[in-house]
Design a protein around this nucleic acid. Structure first.
Lengths: 239, 239
DNA sequence: CGGACAGTTGACCTATTTCAAATGTGGTGG
DNA sequence: CCACCACATTTGAAATAGGTCAACTGTCCG
């Protein structure tokens, strides 16, 4: 059930058998979510964090005028709101983009981990720091990259993150997002996303059609995006 | 020396006398930095985190073409890179914007805190989650707010954060930034920042001159920015 | 077969950028 | 104390990336 989660942790640090058992013991209720359901709302008091088992989800913030910004995408094995353990309530919403399966991890269990499993606590602290690193890279994209670079960069990021859990290879990956979702990730309009995707296709770099990203020229895409995966902290360290 | 830091923690949780002593005992070398010095570079291996005692600093990322995005501003009492404890190296640079004084906190001391002071560890974990919340709000600004809203929003944020440490009131605050720094925060060009500041002045909302922000109409500025401070988590909680 | 979306395209618009030049301003050395 | 230099700020004119509006075309369910 949590193999993708463990794979993600073990890509970054050593997780002992005992720690794996502690993680498994911390899992609570499993829930199924339908696509487009907002399952956590900003300001709600929370007593459990949510781990994504399957599907694609996102964090987003809306402005009073209705403009939406997705602040991060989540793939299987990601915690959607590990930070709700620290924050107790969120400053953003969390939504399923596709049908999803999640499992709850009660904050009480996480408190216990901080009391008795300091190394595992540091690994989970690391996960929240990794989230922040992704946010920073998105700030850079939103603030300083052109439309085509933003989209190319996002695709490069997703290829790596999905690759970690065996859901992407050099040819591409399944991405059940609409162009409008993509516009909310990149701070663009849906119309401009459409034109930019055509541009990427015409340049022979990649194709996003039928909920699938097909990469035709990974090197070219990476170069256009100026993508450097170091912000994803893929090296193993003692945390 | 670390009064601003303690004030910031105590605005969000209860810190016992003992914990305060643990924090004080974790402090290492104090350093003075001149303005415009980059003191931490992306990719460097780090063995201590840095706490800002005095001055204004920032985290920033550069693109190969030279475009810069500042991803967060830091005021006295902020950790500049508490996350380097988890990450071991950073994905961004850290620079002094004014002359600054900082103190190092060795990662070994932080490890010790996670082993022996679980509550304090949770408080520090919270600080990194708060950083991420600020990053998310900046993503929203960069992706979806207009130039004038971005600047107004940033000023509202700074007023609250500086207010927490007694360096701002309703009339304004000292802000020793250039318009060019401001453009790197907001993803705009310096020229447009200049015009937008004039616009804010002409609307009677605020004035940024001579390294000082003077707020003429806080309610109007807040409304224009659609500023809501909940992402700064100012309420006290048991973490 | 129809209805609700998702994607596509064209024409036009505008917020912001770009480029260039002029005008402060604060610090330094003579 | 002044001259000068390096920056920071300000302004104008022209250019453009991306937005807006509106219509048309899939496409997938029910």
């Amino acid at each position: 059930m949590i193999e993708t989660h463990l794979a993600k942790l073990r890509a970054r640090d050593t997780i002992s058998e005992e720690e794996e058992q502690v993680i498994r013991a911390s899992l609570g209720e499993v829930r199924e979510l339908r696509a487009h359901v907002t399952c956590i709302r900003a300001g709600e008091r929370l007593s459990a964090s949510t781990l994504l088992l399957d599907g694609l989800m996102c964090r987003y913030k809306d402005l009073p005028g209705g403009e939406r910004q997705i602040t991060e995408l989540h793939v299987a094995g990601d915690f959607l709101d590990l930070h709700s353990f620290s924050l107790k309530q969120l400053d953003h919403n969390v939504m399923a983009l596709t049908p999803c399966r999640v499992v709850l991890v009660p904050h009480a269990k996480l408190t216990e981990i901080t009391e008795t499993q300091p190394h595992l606590a540091r690994v989970y602290w690391f996960l929240t720091a990794l989230d922040a690193a992704i946010h920073r890279e998105w700030e850079l994209s939103l603030g300083r990259r052109s439309a085509i670079q933003r989209i190319a960069h996002l695709m490069c990021e997703l290829r790596v993150r999905l690759g970690l859990i065996g859901q992407a290879d050099d040819d591409g990956f399944s991405l059940p997002l609409t162009q409008s979702d993509l516009s909310d990730c990149t701070g663009l309009t849906p119309v401009h996303v459409n034109r930019t995707l055509r541009d990427l296709r015409e340049r022979g770099l990649m194709d996003f059609r039928g909920r699938r990203v097909t990469i035709h020229d990974l090197a070219g895409l990476t170069a256009l995006a100026e993508f450097d995966d170091s912000y994803l902290y893929l090296r193993r360290e003692e945390r």
